[in-house]
Simulated assay, not measured.
Amino acid sequence: MANVTAADVKRLRELTGSGMMDCKNALVDAEGDFEKAVETLRLKGAKDVGKRAERTAGNGLVAEYFKGEGDGTLLELNCETDFVAKNESFIELADKITKFAAESGVADVPALLGAEIEPGKTVQALIEQNSATIGEKLELRRFVHFTGAYVASYLHKSDPQLPPTTGVLVQLDKVDPQVARDVAQQIAAMAPKYLTFEEIPADVIEKERALAETKTREEGKPEAAIAKIVDGRVNAYLRDFVLLEQAFVKDNKKTIAKLLDEAGVKVERFVRFKVGQA
């Protein structure tokens, strides 16, 4: 039997993202042959793909790709553990799919998964192939592709040892790198859901209004004042979720709307991805 060292196991784990004991057993079975050990892990992974389908892919990364200053793509690829999230092959897979998403022109995740990224191989098949090799459930969760006058991004690492887990893509009506970066960082930090009040769905407003009214009545406020109090509470609550209404994190004396007005720039749209969150 071949002498399998801890260094060998570590190397195979880094190469495949598989568990420590799986790597050790694969090396023992392969009598120290790395190529055979990798193939063993791939076969084991392929056999277990169905079992992995029910597991949660709550880790992962956010990747980006730009074709120019007015063309950017943001994508979230999930896995089960942070160990795999920082695996080089997983990062390369995310980058490859993100670039393909930008260049293929597909509109949504189902179309992207069904598109042929390699001759005879769809994105879904490529993900499943890597899932089998790595030994974890991998999932393409979402992506967005913006084109306009100016598109910028911001990627944030919550842990310096891991790839970015929060990503923002913002589109402006004109080129302004500094404002774009300030706004993207604002979105990353403060997590707005809407650009303006007008974008808030009516059902969201009504739900918040009902809660505010119930709370106000329970406090015994005068009937004549209830409507005004409810309006104030609803607006104050929802303002935190509207980008243009938020206080600028670098200068809380001005709103994002004021920042943009001073720069003569408009935000046309934005998106924020945080791994594991809606």
Rank of each mutant, 00 (worst) to 15 (best):
T73E: 10
T73C: 14
L75T: 08
E76G: 10
N78V: 08
N78I: 08
T81W: 02
S89D: 13
S89Y: 11
S89L: 13
F90C: 09
F90W: 08
I91E: 14
E92K: 15
L93V: 02
L93D: 03
K96V: 05
T98Q: 11
K99Q: 14
F100D: 00
A102I: 06
S104Q: 11
V106T: 15
A111K: 14
L112P: 03
L113A: 12
A115Q: 10
E116I: 07
I117K: 12
I117F: 13
K121D: 09
Q124S: 15
Q124P: 09
L126W: 03
E128A: 09
T133E: 12
K137G: 05
K137E: 09
L138S: 06
E139D: 11
L140W: 01
H145R: 15
H145Q: 12
F146H: 11
F146A: 10
F146E: 06
T147E: 15
G148K: 00
A149D: 14
Y150S: 07
V151H: 05
S153H: 14
Y154I: 05
Y154M: 06
L155H: 12
L155N: 08
K157L: 10
S158C: 12
D159K: 09
L162C: 10
T165C: 13
T165L: 08
G167P: 08
G167H: 07
G167A: 11
V170T: 05
V175T: 14
V175D: 15
D176F: 01
P177L: 01
P177K: 07
V179F: 04
R181G: 05
D182T: 07
A184V: 04
A184Q: 01
Q185V: 10
Q186L: 00
A188R: 01
A189G: 09
A191E: 14
P192C: 01
P192H: 05
L195D: 01
F197H: 14
